[in-house]
Computed example of a mutant assay.
Amino acid sequence: MFRKTLRRSLQKGLKKTRNAVILGLSAAALICTPVFAQVRTPESSGSVTYSNGNAVIDASNASQGYVMVKYTGGTSRIKVRITKGTDYTYDLNASGNYEVFPLTEGSGTYTVKVFQQVQGTSYAQVMSQTINVNLADELSPFLYPNQFCNFRADSAVVSTAASITAGVSDPLSKVQAIYNYAVDNISYDYQKAATVQSGYLPVPDSTLASKTGICFDYAAVMTSMLRSQDIPTKLVIGYTGGAYHAWVSVYVTGQGWVDNIIYFDGVNWRYMDPTFASSGKGNAAITSYITNPANYQAKFTY
């Protein structure tokens, strides 16, 4: 009788232990499962459009911080200029497909112009449209993909960002994880930097695949990853010393925009310039340079 009772007790204990282990493993699996934030997808919904036979401007979602433009007039080289306080000039494909351009200077009146190449560096204006923009959220322009940080829900940068931030809920920790990934996994491509042509556009997924890139590639990868995790991020282009350069800034709830930052040491943020940090791992002189705000002058924000 005693043995039978003991056996039953042991069986019950083993069953409880097994169930606890299963629950523990299930919880661990849930914790480590990559979280795919809702990736914002630009739409040319057609509710507010302007056209003249040469180009179409879709401003249906200007309140979300972007316009979409396509050229329908032929196969010439095309440029788009968007102006509020600063002139932002972009190349536009001539294939008749929409491209996304951000409205990064807040609410107000923007002018969108489309130019067609006449010869060499000479261009003729083929369309001009004034658009009154009232942003629903001042952070929206820095959450959507655009021509300079181009990603979709099925992009490799999105799945990679979800994987490396799996189990992480704190935005600051996500920023640090993504920053560390960019620094540790992408090497600076000096040959590409020496031969890159004007008008170059980064392709974040290609940079991940090759594990090499120039400053523009680093910034585009990191911006795409952070935005895909619902962290407002600015891709900034300007000058560091006498060189044209690209870096990133992020928005942290309760703290605001953290500009030109590299890492959070528990008390203060430092420069988040993944290019120099990667090429100068452990170099005290480079660390000193990139933590000095005087060495960075922003020119454009995307």
Rank of each mutant, 00 (worst) to 15 (best):
G242M: 02
E105I: 02
I131W: 01
S45K: 08
M272W: 05
R8L: 06
A177T: 04
R152A: 04
L143C: 12
P34S: 13
A29C: 15
Y190N: 10
A285W: 03
N295M: 03
K234L: 00
V252F: 04
T301D: 13
Q11G: 00
A219M: 07
W269C: 01
R227A: 07
G46Q: 05
K192M: 15
I82F: 03
S95Q: 04
I22E: 10
Q229L: 09
Y181G: 10
A166V: 10
L235E: 13
R77V: 15
P274S: 15
K12W: 11
T33W: 15
S107T: 09
V168L: 13
T75P: 02
G74D: 07
T33V: 11
P232C: 08
I290R: 01
A156S: 15
Y144H: 03
S9H: 03
T291Q: 09
K16V: 12
S51A: 10
F101T: 06
F2A: 00
A59K: 04
Y190C: 06
A29T: 15
Y289S: 14
N93A: 14
V196G: 07
V67N: 09
L139F: 00
D91F: 11
L139M: 05
S198E: 13
T5H: 11
K211G: 09
T5P: 01
Y179C: 05
D273V: 08
R18D: 02
K4N: 15
S140Y: 08
R40W: 05
A156T: 07
I82G: 05
S9D: 04
G108R: 06
A37P: 06
Q147W: 03
S155K: 05
P293T: 11
S210T: 12
T89A: 07
N185Y: 04
T83Y: 00
Q116D: 10
S122R: 01
D217H: 14
Y66N: 08
D184T: 07
W247L: 00
S288G: 10
Y190Q: 09
P34G: 12
N150H: 04
G167M: 10
Y218V: 10
V258D: 13
L23G: 14
L135N: 11
Y98N: 01
Q116S: 15
A59I: 02
N185A: 11
F2P: 03
S206M: 11
S63D: 14
Q297K: 09
K16A: 14
T17V: 13
Y88W: 04
S210N: 08
T195S: 15
F151T: 01
S95F: 03
E43Q: 12
R227Y: 08
G241S: 08
S63L: 05
G65L: 05
A284I: 06
G167W: 13
S155F: 10
I186D: 11
V39G: 00
C32E: 14
T195R: 12
A277G: 06
G266V: 06
Y190P: 01
I214G: 11
S173P: 02
G24P: 00
D265M: 11
D205S: 10
Y71P: 04
D137T: 02
G24A: 04
Y190S: 15
S224I: 12
V168K: 12
S63Y: 12
V48W: 15
N134C: 02
G74C: 07
I262C: 03
N283Y: 04
V80D: 00
Q197Y: 10
